[in-house]
């Protein structure tokens, strides 16, 4: 029994340390990356994998069903809400021209000459594409 408990403790500690390390990589990426999209790419790492690892570690360590279910709820919320907020922020970032478009390899919203084909850049975010 005690061997099993110590194995569970080691697994939980490994999960917690991995989640904390992912949070550190997110901070480094936030400081070093050049524009909003790549910063968001780095910044959402702890949001999905890091929080999942930390929640697994907490669920192993904590006793009681209530705490485990609440940790599962937090992980499910993160999985559901991270794509939504990332989509909204990146959409607004592109339309407000906060994206380093000279660093993009593929940009389907511009034509071959580099002109904006769909968005002018100054319309509200909830406006549809203005095809002229």
């Amino acid at each position: 029994m005690s061997v099993l408990a110590s194995i569970a403790d080691v697994v939980a500690a490994a999960c917690l340390l991995a989640g904390a390390f992912l949070c550190l990589t997110a901070g480094v990426g936030l400081v070093r990356f050049p524009d909003v999209l790549s910063r968001m790419h780095a910044g959402t790492k702890p949001q999905v994998l890091g929080v999942l690892l930390v929640m697994v570690g907490g669920a192993i360590r904590l006793h009681g069903l209530a705490a485990t279910w609440m940790l599962l709820l937090v992980a499910a919320f993160q999985l559901l809400t991270a794509p939504v907020s990332a989509h909204m922020i990146s959409r607004v970032a592109y339309r407000r021209r906060h994206v380093r478009r000279d660093l993009l390899l593929v940009d389907e919203l511009r034509d071959a000459e580099g002109r904006d084909s769909v968005y002018r850049g100054d319309e509200p975010a909830d406006a549809g594409p203005q095809l002229s």
């Binding site: 939980a12 968001m40 890091g50 705490a67």
Partner: peptide, 21 residues
């Protein structure tokens, strides 16, 4: 906004680490 989002996630992870340990 991205930095605040990441900061809140790190804070919640820190609370979870404290609760677990």
């Amino acid at each position: 906004v991205v930095a605040t989002d990441t900061l809140l996630v790190i804070i919640s992870a820190s609370l979870a680490v404290h609760a677990a340990l």
